[in-house]
Design a protein around this nucleic acid. Structure first.
Lengths: 245, 245
DNA sequence: TCAATGCGTATGTCCGGACAATCTGACTAC
DNA sequence: GTAGTCAGATTGTCCGGACATACGCATTGA
């Protein structure tokens, strides 16, 4: 099996990136079968007319993604499949859309409120200062799936209600030039209150899946604090995670 | 502010690792304050008597950890704190111990069973073949916190009951020379059945937090399949996650 | 006053080479 | 036959340099 690889030096795309993409595609496509050796780096570099550091950089990025495993003295192997993708900081909207679920959003509240101590602590603003509040109901197949309550620092973003109904919050932030960096999440469960049950078409006392999240941009600012409740019969958190070596 | 950095060339510890550890310690300790610039790589390399690639490798590892942010034309900045540590593939036992909770384990079942279709699919073994089954009750402060049901491929590990009561399953696997690589997890919630309620000292119908996990080693083998239920009043999943750039 | 331009600075990418550490497998000695 | 030893293969670490690219700021121009 030959595995055709080539790079375009006239392209503005970095060489290591071109290579890693081709390797990833070959793994995805099954051309590179799980467990098979990738061939040594030096020979691979020579074959492509690249230097070894460049090839290493390409391979390293796939190792970080969990697709490849390196063993000193042995070689680089394709991981025995099962790997889909590591946990990403994704929005529920994107997740649903990617799963072909046709998400819909109903904006219940889109206003400013005075920050409580809890909100102020999460967003790093002064208690009592004005913050955006957005309450949304997320539906899939016409059925309520989650109730999302979010708070944002003021003047960070234009929160157009119409736009909120057709896309996700994260997508709007990215479009506004905000570089998301990290988030702190807590996932738990509790019994539904009367109000929660009403909103999600559940019964009082029914188990709900809860998630709280504070998201930070790359300057360290908190850009969003959210309290979400999900119907566990309709949604669960599913993800892959890698062991940090 | 000077920030003393030095490397020991006689040490077997890689130079880039020595440097990244010192930088991480300085960030942790507050010597490097959030938002401050790290100083350019070339000058830093010259000051330490290292090459730029080595310095870059050290910095890159901290960028991957989410502690630093690089900006072309600007420099490398310390992220505005809040970052603790990304989601790790950790065992409940280690988590509790790290939190100073003094975990205790009661092994309820430690035997072999015939693999059901579900177990066989998760572990990648033949349906009906023998697999290890371990059922444990995890306690903290004498109160039941979680009920753990795990299945393992046979002949992978010696599952000593006494050892299971004093340590975690992951620690035993690592000690047995198994290199954990990745895991696929699902977190959800549901109402407790009579049996579950009984085991966890809850009431029937009480909300429970559930987690299913399949863990793989670096050869791609499934090494563990687990179905866990947690008392949401006693435990929730808390973690930090980074945006893949 | 405000926008466009240019320059310095810092990271991003890439090269070619060198030696060390580790694993596998074959060979050798007992 | 078994265990220890050695050689080859492959990745890990490190060096020194070169040019490209993007950002911020000061200068310049309308």
């Amino acid at each position: 099996m030959t595995l055709e690889l080539s790079v375009d030096r006239s392209s503005p795309v970095p060489l290591y990136f071109q290579l890693s993409q081709q390797l990833e595609a070959a793994i995805e496509h099954g051309t590179l079968t799980p467990g098979s050796l990738l061939g040594n780096e030096i020979e691979l570099a020579a074959r492509l007319g690249l230097s070894r550091p460049t090839v290493r950089q390409a391979i390293q990025s796939l190792v970080d993604k969990g697709l490849l495993v390196r063993r000193r003295g042995v070689g680089t192997q394709v991981v025995h499949s099962q790997v889909k993708r590591p946990l990403e900081l994704s929005s529920l909207y994107d997740d649903l859309e990617a799963a072909g679920q046709r998400p819909a959003t109903r904006v219940l509240v889109n206003t400013f409120v005075s920050a409580t101590a809890e909100i102020a602590a999460a967003l790093g603003v002064a208690e009592g200062s004005d913050v955006h509040q957005v309450e949304r109901l997320r539906l899939a197949h016409g059925e309520p799936m989650a109730y999302l309550c979010n708070y944002l620092p003021p003047a960070l973003l234009d929160l157009d209600t119409a736009q909120l109904e057709t896309t996700g919050l994260y997508r709007m932030m990215r479009a506004a030039g905000i570089t998301l960096h990290s988030a702190r999440q807590t996932i738990g469960a509790r019994a539904a209150t009367v109000d929660e049950a009403d909103r999600l078409a559940e019964q009082e006392g029914a188990p709900l899946l809860t998630m709280q999240r504070v998201t930070f941009d790359d300057t360290g600012r908190a850009v969003e604090y959210g309290t979400h409740t999900y119907r566990p019969t309709r949604y669960s958190f599913e993800f892959q995670l890698l062991v940090r070596p």
